[in-house]
């Protein structure tokens, strides 16, 4: 089974460009209904399917995503 992962999104720096949504293999991310202080709908985690592949963080132009992934044999 795939290892579990998690993402932390800096919602204040997110500009809601949706590039991370397109890069996620498991459709973990979606845009929020709320907006941040700059008026952007920010990306957020909507389910627990994250595998910690870091694709979203690698394509994020604003470097707002931090990715965690559990270690093997845990």
């Amino acid at each position: 089974m795939a290892r579990k992962g998690d993402v932390v999104i800096n919602i204040e720096k997110c500009k809601g460009c949706e590039v991370c949504l397109a890069a996620c293999p498991n459709e973990v991310l979606a845009l929020s209904k709320e907006v941040n202080s700059k008026g952007y709908h920010f990306a957020m985690k909507v389910n627990s399917e994250c595998i910690g592949c870091a694709n979203c963080a690698i394509v994020c132009p604003d470097a707002v995503i931090t990715v965690y992934r559990e270690k093997r044999n845990n």
């Binding site: 500009k15 460009c17 590039v19 963080a57 132009p61 604003d62 470097a63 931090t66 990715v67």
Partner: peptide, 21 residues
């Protein structure tokens, strides 16, 4: 210890002025 990706410290914490995407 489970961290796999974070912003590098060679980039400052300033918000980029570029357009979304």
């Amino acid at each position: 210890e489970n961290l796999v990706y974070e912003k590098t410290s060679v980039m400052t914490d300033r918000v980029l002025h570029y357009c979304p995407g």
